[in-house]
C-alpha cells in the first residue's frame, strides 16, 4: 500500500481498518467515512471493482460479502471490518469464474467492460447457488447490474450456458481465456 504525498494535511482522524479481502487481512489507515469501494480501489489497488453511481443503483461496484453480491459503494470500509470481502481479483483462479469468463468471451457478453466485473461476481454467486438456468430467472437475478452497451442478451446466454453446465454436473472449469 502506498500513501500518496496527498495525505499530509488531513485533519480528520484516520482510523485503522483491518479488512479481509480475498482471504487476506490487510490493515489500512483511512477516515471512517471512506466507502469500501474507494478503499478497495485507491488504497488496495483493486481496481476491478468499478464505481458507476455511488447511489446503490448500477451494480458496477458489486463485491461478494460472505459470498453474497453486495454494493461496495453502500458500505463504509470501517463497517466492513470482520466481513469476508471478495473482489474479482480474488476469484480469478476459481473454475466457475473461469467458465463464466470463457462464456462471456464466446457469447460477446461485454463491450466497454465497465459493468463486467460486477456482472461476473453476481453471475458467480448465481452459479454457486445453482440458480435455475431459465432466462427469466437469470434476468431477474441480474436486474441489479446495469449494462448500457450489450442489451443484456448475450450476458443472459453466457450465464445460462454455465448454469446449464452446473445443472448437468459438468466440471465448471473449461480452460480460461486465450
Amino acid at each position: 500500500m502506498t500513501e500518496g504525498a496527498n495525505q499530509k494535511t488531513t485533519a480528520e482522524e484516520a482510523v485503522e481498518v483491518a479488512l479481509e479481502v480475498n482471504g487476506t487481512v490487510t490493515k489500512v489507515l483511512v477516515p471512517s467515512r471512506w466507502l469500501l469501494s474507494d478503499v478497495l480501489r485507491h488504497r488496495l489497488g483493486l481496481t476491478a471493482t468499478h464505481v458507476g453511481c455511488e447511489q446503490g443503483v448500477c451494480g458496477a461496484c458489486t463485491v461478494l460479502i460472505d459470498g453474497v453480491p453486495t454494493r461496495s459503494c453502500l458500505l463504509f470500509a470501517k463497517a466492513a471490518e470482520g466481513l469476508a470481502i471478495t473482489t474479482l481479483e480474488g476469484v480469478l483462479d476459481d473454475p466457475a469464474l473461469q467458465a463464466l469468463q470463457e462464456a462471456f468471451h464466446r457469447h460477446h457478453a461485454l463491450q466497454c467492460g465497465f459493468c463486467t466485473p460486477g456482472m461476473l461476481l453476481t453471475a458467480l454467486a448465481m452459479v454457486r447457488q445453482q440458480v435455475p438456468a431459465e432466462p427469466e430467472t437469470i434476468r431477474e437475478y441480474l436486474s441489479g447490474n446495469l449494462c448500457r452497451c450489450t442489451g443484456y442478451q448475450y450476458i443472459v446466454e453466457a450465464v445460462a450456458e454455465v448454469l446449464q453446465a452446473v445443472d448437468r454436473g459438468d466440471p465448471a472449469g473449461s480452460p480460461a481465456l486465450p
Binding site: T47, T87, E89, L92, Q101, F104, L110, G113, L177
Partner: peptide
C-alpha cells in the same frame, strides 16, 4: 479486448 476486461 475481452481478456483484460474479464479479468479486471
Amino acid at each position: 479486448e475481452d481478456a483484460r476486461l474479464l479479468s479486471g
